[in-house]
Simulated scan of single mutants.
Amino acid sequence: MPEGHTVHRLAAALARGFGGQRVRTSSPQGRFADAEALDGHVLLGAEAAGKHLFLPFAPSADVDPTGPAVRHVHVHLGLYGSWTFAGDPGTFDAHAIGAPRLRIGEREEGLASADGGSRDWRRIVPRETVRLRIAGPHGLADLTGPTACEVLDGEGRQRVLDRLGPDPLRPDPDGSQRRRFVDGIRRSRSTIGQLLMNQQVVAGIGNIYRAELLFRARLDPTVPGRDLTAGMLEDMWEDLVALMAYGARTGRIVTTQPEHREIEARIVERSRGTRQNGDEDPGVVPREQSFYVYHRQTLPCRLCGTVIRSADMGGRTVFWCPRCQSVRSRRASWSRQHPAAPWAVEER
């Protein structure tokens, strides 16, 4: 499932490509009936909150974005959702965001072209699986495979936001989101591994960030939240903010330090492997070098050589190193113990 950094990257792309423009909307699949009512409206921008995307549509660009005339298309990508883009040069900096897809217009997973392969995006015919197409003056975007695609009014949007925990990628000028994160975990008897996957505790974290954040904090996934100190949790929050900001910039989750990437550069893949957007692009950190513990069960830890373990936790698989992640209570986190290994990863 795409994690929170993906949705923030997606919101930025949609706002850049269509923000403030009058757009055409349609549902080639026929499963989003509201597309017809929104056709010809102005897309005011885009908003991400955790794994949720909101696209505000209004009759004109001067409408109050908080007013009753605005309708919000609420999208949750789920496991298989993705947006695929095509347009004038420079309109979009990625061909797809979400579950990995081929380029728009390519036959296997993208869209078929009306003239058998023309690169003119205006002539691309949508596949029948497209739930929502947005077309503007300079490009188009197709949504396929989402778990949710619905229209909400302002109150409906707020209800979704109210049930979410703090999002590490949303602005936090007064530190209130960090405090909510710390307080929410310290009040709970649940394990930190379970709490990090609870979207009401922290919005946007998925299984990769959960596993990697706990490894970087040298923290056992089974420690109860109430046993952790505020200092440890503040460090974890700052690490998470930096890791997810990197993901939002690059479209990829990379949690390893450069000096560790060539050590035991393997992962235990499923049928299609742990794919990320951009795997086919040259110069990216390969997925085999990107993680410390995620999908590395039965392989040696990059740092200590101990075999990485995995287990079920709340219906999802958790991955950890039983030696490196020996911290179970009120002790310093990895960032404090290892000042030479800061949380910010090297960009490539």
Rank of each mutant, 00 (worst) to 15 (best):
M1S: 15
H5K: 02
T6H: 00
A11P: 00
A11D: 00
A15T: 07
G19L: 02
R22M: 05
S27G: 04
S27Q: 03
F32N: 02
A33E: 14
V42K: 03
L44Y: 06
E47G: 01
H52A: 15
F54N: 04
L55E: 03
F57Q: 02
D62Q: 13
G78R: 11
S82R: 05
F85Q: 06
F85V: 06
P89G: 05
T91G: 03
H95Y: 12
A99E: 10
E108K: 14
D115F: 13
G116F: 10
R123G: 04
I124N: 00
V125N: 04
E128C: 09
L132F: 10
G139M: 06
L143H: 07
T144Q: 15
G145C: 10
G156L: 12
R157W: 08
D167C: 07
L169Y: 09
D172P: 01
D174N: 04
S176T: 15
S176M: 11
Q177L: 11
D183V: 13
S190D: 09
A203F: 12
A203I: 11
G206T: 05
A217M: 13
R218A: 06
L219P: 00
D227Y: 09
T229R: 09
M236W: 00
W237I: 00
A248R: 14
I267P: 00
T274D: 07
R275I: 14
V285D: 03
R287V: 15
E288R: 15
L299S: 06
V307H: 06
I308N: 00
A311T: 09
M313Q: 15
G314H: 10
F319R: 01
Q325W: 03
V327D: 13
R328T: 14
A332C: 06
P339Y: 12
E347C: 06
